[in-house]
Structure formats: C-alpha cells, structure tokens
Design a binder for these strands. Structure first.
Lengths: 319, 319
DNA sequence: TTGTAGGCGTTATCAT
DNA sequence: ATGATAACGCCTACAA
C-alpha cells in the first residue's frame, strides 16, 4: 500500500520511506501495470472508434481529431474498421459491451434507423452520422439539409442553371438522401426545376466512382453547368473525370463538394466545399462520451448535436 | 470453472450441464469481460501504433492496412499520434512498457539513430521508417535509395535533363537524405551533373509546403524540366503550385512522387510515383510483432525487412 | 504513517 | 465431469 501511495504521489508517506521505495523501484526497474490498474478500477482507459475505414480523407481526419481530443482526457482510442457493414458495426457495439472499451463512438454507415434499438445498451455510446436519429444515445450530426442547400444555392448564385448532383443510393435516410433534399430545396426556392436526369448516383461515394460517373455524365451528352457532390472524395474524382472528358472547371461546369477535407484546398482546381467544422464535432463527440463514462446514474437526456457549417469558396466554383 | 469451460467451448462438459449454464447466461444477459480475460492471461489484446499523425494520406493508409492485418490475428490497434516529436515517440514506448499494449509498431520520425538504445526494451517493438537502422528491434523499411534512383531514372528516360528534387531537411539519416542519395545516384549514372540549385527543401513534407516551394521555384526563375518529390503529399502540393505558376505538367515539367497514396491516381494530372507495396509492409510489421509477442524466449535475430517497390507511371510524367 | 485483507473477472491447476 | 483454490497487479477500505 505504501508503494501504491508513493507511485500515485499521495501524501502521508514519510520522506525516508518514499525514498526507500523509489530506490527499490529504480533498482528493480519497476513499472506500473496500467492494464491492471484500469482493471481494478473497472475501466480500460480506452474508447473505441468504429468507422467504415480509416483510409479516406474524411474518416482519417475524424479519427485524428478524436484521438487528439481523447488524449487530453487521458484516453486511448482503438480503431475498428467496419467497412460500412451492419454486422461489423454491431460487432463493435458488442466489443464495447464486453468491457473492452469504456465507451464507443460509432460512425454508423451500415446500420439504419431500424437498428436504433440495438443502441439501447448499458454502456456509453455516441453515434455519429445521419442514418439513425432519435436513438437512445447521444448523437452528433451534420447540418446536412441546410448545408447542402447552401452549397447548391452557391452554385445558383454563380450562375448555374442546370445543376447536377452526384450522390449515393438514396433508399434510406442517410447522408445522400439528406443532402439530396437540401439540393432540391435550393432549386425549389430558386424556381429551378429539378430535372431527374440531373440526379446521378454512385455505388460507393469514393474517388473511383466519382471519376467514372462524371465521365459518363459528359459522354452521355448530359447537359449541366453545375455539380454538387455528396462529399469531397466524390468531388475529387469528379474533377478528375471532367478533366478526362475535356470539360473545363469552373468555366464549363462549376463543382462543389462537402466535408472540406485537407486535400480539397490543394487540388487543381482547388475545390469549393462545405466545412462542417470537424473539430467541433469531434470534440463534442468525445465530450459527450466522457460525460456518460463518468456519470454514475443513467442520467441526462440524450443529446442531439448538430454542428455549425460554412461554405468554403474556391476555384472550382470560380472563387 | 465449468462456466469457463462452456464459454470457451471446451470439451468435458456434460450436455445437460452445458445447457443449464447457457440458459443462466441468457437469463442474466451475461457477457464475458474481455479485459479481465486478457488481464488474467497477461495480455491486453491490443497493439499500439505510433505515427506522426493519422490525418495524412500516407499514414492513414498505413494505419488502415495495419488495423486490418492485426484484426486477422484478433488484435485491436490503438493509435498514438506523436506529431513526429521525439518525446511523444518515447512516451508511446513507455506506454507499451507499462503493459498497456502487447506490442508497439513505431513509425519513428522524431527519434534518430542516437536513440537506438531506447529501443532496447523487454517488450515487442517493430520499428518502421528510415531514421534508425540496425537497432535492437525488428525493422521494416522502404527501399529508399533504390526506389528514388528508379524514380529519377524514369524522369531521365522521359527526356528530363534538369531535374529538381523537393525534399525535407537532410541533416540526419531519414527519408529525405536517403531519397536524395538515390536521386544523386541516378544523375551520376546518367552523366548529368547535380546542380545544387535544383536541390530544394521544405520544412515539413506536406501539401502546403509543396505548393509554396514549387511556386517559389518557378517564380525565382529556376530552370528545371523534371521534379522528384520526396512524397506524394509534397507532390500533390507541387502540382498545385506549378499550376498556380502557370507551368504545364507534364509538358513543361514532369513530376514524380513517392508512396502511391490513394489520391495520386485521381489527381489532375494523375501522379506518377513509387509504390513501396504498403500491404506487404504492413503485413510484415504485424507479423514480426506477433512473432515477438508469442515467442517465449528472447529468440530470433532482429530482422530488417525492406519492401519491394515499383514505379507507377501516370500522366504527370507523360505516361 | 504503514500494513493487512479483500476484490475486480477470468483462467490454470489440481482435487474430487 | 465438476468444482475449489489461487493467481494476475492494482486499488479501496480499514486496521494497527
């Protein structure tokens, strides 16, 4: 016990005793076993972060910010790659339930609203993203509809009249359907009709698909002068696809993305986009989780936090 | 004990007993406590991965691959961001020493050859990168000199005669100095003199610096027709900087990077680069670490693994 | 100020 | 086939 008191720098240890202990620790090259300490406290000192994959501009940035925020609270972050599959997301939840993590930040991409019940667990969970609303957990989301409307409005203000959108499948409530709703809203308010041909979908919202789809749009003779992409990865791909097809951006087509990933600023042309304030989101997610971890009683209402956003104007829309 | 036997699906449990246990487990909504299990086995089930930051195309890809490889062995990965600082790298080592991790994969960027002694620890460590060679641990490295030589040779073969290099400070043995050596080697063999003015350095090898430096090179009137960048992030920036300065790639200047990050393929123009076979590297690092974790005696010689590589030819060199 | 006892949840060992 | 006991390394609570 006295050793423990010395290690934890607690008072009520005689100077001489303290030094004897320290000497012995040095002599034996003793190290506290943090795992054992956590175990005895019923903690692991680690939170889980489940994302579809970490090798994408968006999720790697999210992970970086969350790791930094967690570190300030002396928590480590273990990353789980779900590949956007429902099973893997549920698996991450169960690892947390198995007390491998003190709490879980789950970026849902496979689970849907129907799975909200699965979140009714007795350990801390914060959910990120747009596929589950009003679930029995704290939730950090983006202002998808409003921000998508603002992005589309920006294209309109720059003179675009036939604005296409490149988004994922929209069968469920998720990023794509919400951003599509914002797009429609902007067109409506501007009195522009939403030509169904201008609504294009990709299988997975990544660069590869962005390239392919953008080329096809041009080569099929689709007439458009603006393009709103569901995220910056798709937009990066689209810039590439348009270049391949000989379309000049922003002269012939203006392009705007969503996320403001690090790369966007450095593309040729640099990419206009929506910045959903990643730092605030990550910070908030971590803080919500920690509040749950530290609360003793089931406690507070579940919070729904929607991040502020801004439109970042760059060359791809003639900025 | 019988319960434990049931949970772990071990034999020597009567059918009826097993069912009684399973029934009780279901009734009580029992979950194994993985942390406790690991603790009793003297393991944590988690390895540490220390990288400068996870929000970069290169390190996020590395992290993704390592997480996937570790998962196959049922190990979780905890990520530590060191910001390339020596202190933080040593801190990651000490967390590992404190039995928070079963082992550590350390991508050294702040520690140098002089710190090799610090790696003499009694727990498994695999070191990644080019700053420490011949240390007392397993090491996974890139074929920097050879690959840089091949990249430079590729520029020469494409007709470049005044080839610049954009690399980090070269005061120590690291990525930059090794790749610079390869660059010099290629010029020598081709009988081209290495004009010192063509050797340009950046503070940190990232996109932002790549943009700034490339612009400056053009605007200062430096005469060059080829550019080898120390990594793809710098190269992405350089493409952007050259575009700003009105230089056409590949017509006026051909550009090649190093790393083959996911984005390279989708840039405009797409970026030629060196592919150091990330998957093989990550796989190898994890396997080496696991071998150490599982070995009972101090065991085998320390292995130095150098990944194979290939030159990927794309538009930025006229491919 | 120091030290003893007990517990965290699991598994290994050994006895029944 | 089942179960008692101890151990993993630390901490809390309490006793000396």
């Amino acid at each position: 016990m006295t050793v423990s008191n010395v290690i934890n720098d607690r008072p009520n240890v005689r100077r001489a005793t303290r030094e004897k202990v320290l000497e012995a620790m040095a002599r034996l090259d003793y190290r506290v076993n943090i795992a054992a300490r956590n175990f005895s406290k019923g903690r692991t000192g680690t939170i889980g972060l489940a994302v579809p994959m970490v090798n994408s501009p968006y999720y790697s940035r999210l992970a970086a910010t969350i790791i930094t925020a967690a570190e300030r609270h002396n928590l480590r972050v273990s990353i789980e790659q779900t590949g956007a599959s429902r099973e893997n997301e549920l698996h991450a939840l169960s690892l947390s339930r198995n007390r491998l993590y003190d709490g879980l930040i789950l970026s849902a991409a496979g689970m849907g609203q129907a799975d909200a019940e699965c979140l009714k667990v007795d350990h801390p969970v914060v959910i990120l993203g747009e596929r589950i609303f009003g679930g029995p957990v704290d939730h950090v989301a983006m202002p998808n509809v409003d921000a998508a409307e603002a992005a589309t409005r920006h294209l309109i203000e720059r003179g675009c009249r036939r604005i296409a959108i490149l988004c994922g499948a929209v069968d469920e409530v998720d990023v794509s359907s919400l951003r599509l709703a914002g797009y429609r809203q902007a067109l409506d308010k501007a009195g522009l009709s939403a030509d169904p041909a201008l609504i294009q979908t990709v299988e997975r919202p990544d660069m590869r698909e962005g390239v392919a789809r953008a080329r096809e749009m041009v080569e099929s003779g689709l007439d458009f002068d603006g393009l709103f992409c569901v995220n910056d990865s798709v937009a990066m791909g689209a810039l590439r696809g348009l270049a391949c097809a000989g379309v000049r951006v922003p002269d012939q087509v203006k392009v705007i993305g969503f996320d403001n990933v690090t790369e966007s600023e450095f593309l040729v042309p640099s990419l206009s986009t929506v910045d959903p304030d990643h730092d605030t989101m990550a910070e908030r997610a971590v803080n919500l989780l920690i509040r749950r971890i530290e609360e003793t009683e089931p406690g507070a209402e579940h919070e729904e936090f929607v991040s502020p956003f801004s439109v970042v104007i760059r060359e791809s829309t003639g900025g």
